[in-house]
Computed example of a mutant assay.
Amino acid sequence: MLAYAPALLCLLMFCAGVVHERRRFSNAVLLGLTFLFAGSAWLFELHRTHPVLGRNLAIALLLVVALGIVTLAWFLISNGTVMVRKEGTRPANLLSLLAGVALVALLVLLVATLILRNRTLAAVTGTAVALTGYVAFLFLCFVVYAFLYGRLNPPRRADYVVVLGSGLAGGATVPPLLASRLERARAVHARQSRRGRQPVLLTSGGQGPDEKVPESHAMADYLVERGVPAELIEREDRSTTTEENLRFSRRIMESANPDYRCVIVTNNYHAFRAALAARRAGVRGYVVGSPTAAYFWPSAMIREFAAIFLTYRRTNLAFCLLFFLGGGAIWWLG
């Protein structure tokens, strides 16, 4: 049972982290380490007590992983082509396609290494596999915890419902992606109203260079047209990024009520990163997500993960450097 001690320790740290502050990426990593250590301990104990069964199971798991990588590459490339067809060739829309191509390239590199048995190629392949494994582990941690975070109950009290902007269609029209946020905000507001509260709906978004009006004004007009009283709506119309959305909204809420609590509404793929940004901005609020089209979700999640990966770039750069050094050591010792 001692083999399970690391998993138990990570689980306890994860639970303490969630109770203390849900909006930390370290919670996601601790949850991932819990599963990783628990699975490794189980395989170790199984191999120790039933060597043949343990070996066969390990081989089966490797085959499942290999098949999973091939399937994932096919899915990402297929999704990438759909994204390009429906959303255009902007860099953000190419992420799932590029990820699928990268997985295919990794598989080709692995096969070439097994066939050629070249020392330099083996070092390059080992480094690539280590980097891919590291990034894949963090991405899985992100996806699983983002899913769990989206299902944690928001606080019962909310003085504000903050809606984050996401750009206007044709410079003045609320597009479907933003409309889904506004509809979720209306639902949250209605639920709070049934509890006897009258929270303010705070629309947040400035005017982009290709927009005729600030996003927050178009969002407010959308809500008024659907029956929300204008006196319950406030606008934050200076922000151009998510971080500014949150920082400027916090100033508005604090000036009116220093003891405020809020619910922040965005799309479901963006909810966890928005929660991390809200913690850094000092916003006292919980983030909820609205539905997103299924074909849009993979590229959007990859983009969100890339942004989080860069947020913690010093730590990630240090690990990547270790992998490169390890690859160099493989080449030198080989």
Rank of each mutant, 00 (worst) to 15 (best):
A3I: 13
Y4P: 07
A7N: 05
L8T: 06
L9D: 11
L11I: 07
L11F: 08
L12P: 10
F14T: 08
C15S: 15
A16E: 11
V19F: 14
F25I: 06
S26I: 15
S26W: 15
S26A: 15
N27E: 02
L31W: 01
F35M: 03
L36D: 08
L36T: 11
A38I: 03
A38P: 07
S40D: 15
A41W: 08
W42I: 09
R48S: 13
R48Y: 13
P51D: 01
L53I: 13
R55G: 14
V64K: 09
M83L: 06
V84P: 09
R85I: 08
K86Y: 12
R90I: 14
A92L: 12
A92H: 12
N93V: 01
L94E: 03
V104G: 03
A105Y: 05
L106E: 01
L106A: 03
L107H: 04
V111H: 07
T113C: 09
T113G: 09
L116W: 12
L116P: 11
N118S: 09
L121Y: 07
G126H: 07
Y134M: 04
A136V: 04
A136T: 04
V143L: 10
Y149W: 10
R151E: 13
R151H: 12
L152N: 14
P155S: 06
R156Q: 14
V161A: 00
L164H: 03
G165W: 02
L168P: 07
G170T: 12
A172E: 15
A172H: 15
T173G: 13
V174M: 07
L177Q: 10
A185P: 00
R186L: 08
V188W: 05
S193H: 15
R194I: 13
G196T: 14
L202Y: 01
S204T: 03
G206Q: 04
G208D: 07
D210G: 09
E211M: 02
V213A: 00
S216T: 00
E225G: 13
I233H: 00
I233D: 00
E236S: 01
D237T: 09
R238Q: 14
S239M: 04
T242G: 03
E243G: 08
F248V: 04
R250G: 03
S255Q: 10
A256T: 05
D259F: 02
Y260G: 01
R261V: 07
C262G: 04
T266Q: 01
N267S: 01
N267M: 00
Y269P: 01
A271S: 02
A271R: 00
L276I: 02
A278I: 01
R279D: 10
R279S: 10
A281Y: 03
G285R: 04
V287W: 02
V288C: 02
G289C: 04
P291S: 07
Y295N: 06
W297F: 14
W297T: 15
I308G: 00
F309D: 06
Y312V: 08
Y312D: 06
L317G: 11
L317D: 13
C320L: 13
L321K: 11
L321T: 10
L322P: 03
F324M: 13
G326C: 02
G326Y: 05
G327T: 10
G327L: 03
A329G: 12
A329T: 09
L333P: 14
G334F: 14
G334V: 15
G334C: 13
